[in-house]
Design a protein around this nucleic acid. Sequence first.
DNA 1: GTGTTTGTTATCAA
DNA 2: CTTGATAACAAACA
Length: 302
Amino acid sequence: MPELPEVETIRRDLAAAILNRKIVSVSILSPKTASHSVAFFKKELIGRRLTEIDRRGKLLIFHLSPKKVKGTSKKPRAEKINCLLIHLKMTGQLIYADKKNKIAGGHSLNNSTELQELPNKHTRAIIEFDNGGQLFFNDLRKFGYLKLVSDAELEKILAANYGPEPLTPAFTLAVFQNAFKKTNVKIKAALLNQKLIAGLGNIYADEVLWAAGINPQRPTQKVTPAEFKKLFVAINQVIGLAIKHRGTTFSDYVDSRGRRGNFSKFLKVYGRTGEKCPRCHNSLKKQKIAGRGTHYCPICQK
DNA sequence: GTGTTTGTTATCAA
DNA sequence: CTTGATAACAAACA
């Protein structure tokens, strides 16, 4: 389940590998995964370069070099495609392989480290570059997508769906607290709402609530200012540390070279049902909250 | 066959 | 209309 730290890890690694490389071929193996026809993807992408890779929450944003226009100096059209968006959703992987390295960690729930050839049966798209490198988009459950948009469409999507990002100047305690006080859903649900705060998913929502000592069931309006402060600090700390350790691998996530994330061993509650709470040593519980498996300590999370 | 896994959106109820 | 809660989606595994 790639969340902010995992997607950020991929973004950084990919930027180092494929920035300013020219796209020479595009294969869409699973048409439903792409926003437009296979022909349109080829037409728009082939011959262009990725000039910048951004991320907003869990969404990757690949900026494309200007498209060469045939013939005389036509004015660029306002609606021209400028960005490739990729969302990994639950089981998506973006793996870059250079000419001789065509392997990646497989999908598996049992911590297997076996490597497999690419493409594999879950490969949905392949983008090939002028240096022979290939970018594989794998997605077992087919929830992820590739989408081509104009700058205007991108701005619209970001404004409509994404709240502030942890670890950025836009994410202040005041902004955070005000946004959360405008709703009254369970705090766990609020943390998963990308419009209130961008980038958290099920793993990190559980982790930050544990770190702040807040019960995931609490309605947001019952959370005190002191607790919001704790939660705010916890979000920045946990996300920062998770990025530093290249994310969490629980089931399918691997980085752009097919390697697992190292943050799993730092998890305090996620996936630790029945183990002792690291803080109060009572038994950790798991319960469905906001439709998601929620891991927490019923004793020290108030 | 049943129940679980989750990011996001669609749908429903109040 | 708004808000919040829940179902649905896909695919695989225990």
